[in-house]
Simulated assay, not measured.
Amino acid sequence: MSGWAQKRFWKEVSVVQTEDGFAVELDGRRVKTPAKAPLAVPTRAMAEAIAAEWDAQTESVDPGTMPCTRSANAAIDKVTHQHSEVAAMLAEYGDSDLLCYRADAPAELTLRQAQEWDPALDWAAEALGVRLQPRTGILHQPQEAAALAALAEQVHAMTPFQLAAFHDLVGISGSLILGFAAAQGWRSADELWLLSRLDERWQEEQWGVDEDAQAAAEVKRQEFLHAKRFYDFS
């Protein structure tokens, strides 16, 4: 029925420890995922964040105000059952990483890309044991197979909850390296978001700000910040 929304039926929200992690209960009844699986998360901090979202609901339940609940549902209902496929898809970003595709002109842009993106590649070389090589132009030039395999191994090692968050860190930024940098706290999520938007920021400086594009970017920024927060909970 169009316009239907679930009504709040509970008075008390609580977090309980269970055999499979931490659960959220509504008046003593355990919250379940959309696929009817018990909602069990790995840490109390994550469960408390989810509980706070449920407790904040008023007369009608608004899923748009429950990002931690949505991420936990995705981890349980989707990523757990497709872990290898999700990890492989994200690892593929390493072969076309945003940080490696550089402009050949103008000089000011190429200099800024080097100044802002090279430190991230340097960090990855030390922290991840892999150095991806920058390319000039838009044509695909493969990275070394050994480097990609090393990155893929680290992606596949993530838990379903980590991978659910990592999916957004990588997909929104367009960079496997920035996804790892966010997950491992190389810089703040806001700083890494700005790195991922270097080309867009350059365009805005040259041609001015498009309000619609700016509004869409802000939505993505909030999603990126949430993904980092959810990863930290895991």
Score class of each variant (00 low, 15 high):
S2E: 15
G3T: 12
Q6E: 15
K7C: 01
E12W: 01
E12L: 06
V13K: 00
V16P: 00
T18C: 07
E19Q: 14
D20I: 04
L26Y: 09
L26C: 03
T33P: 01
P34T: 12
K36P: 00
A45Y: 02
M46F: 11
A47W: 09
A47E: 11
E48W: 02
I50L: 07
A51Y: 07
W54H: 12
E59Y: 08
G64F: 08
T65N: 13
R70D: 14
I76K: 03
E92V: 09
Y93H: 15
S96F: 15
L99T: 06
Y101G: 01
A103L: 06
P106W: 08
A107M: 05
L109G: 03
L111T: 15
P119H: 10
A120K: 03
A120Q: 14
W123M: 09
A125T: 08
A125S: 13
E126I: 05
G129P: 04
G129T: 04
V130P: 03
R131Q: 12
R131H: 12
L132P: 08
Q133T: 15
E144H: 13
V155E: 05
M158N: 02
F161C: 03
Q162G: 14
L163H: 05
L169F: 12
S173I: 04
G174V: 02
L176P: 00
G179N: 07
A181F: 04
A182M: 06
Q184P: 00
S188C: 00
D190S: 14
L194F: 04
R201S: 05
E204G: 01
E205L: 09
V209S: 02
V219T: 12
R221T: 00
R221Y: 08
K228E: 08
R229G: 05
D232Q: 13
F233Y: 15
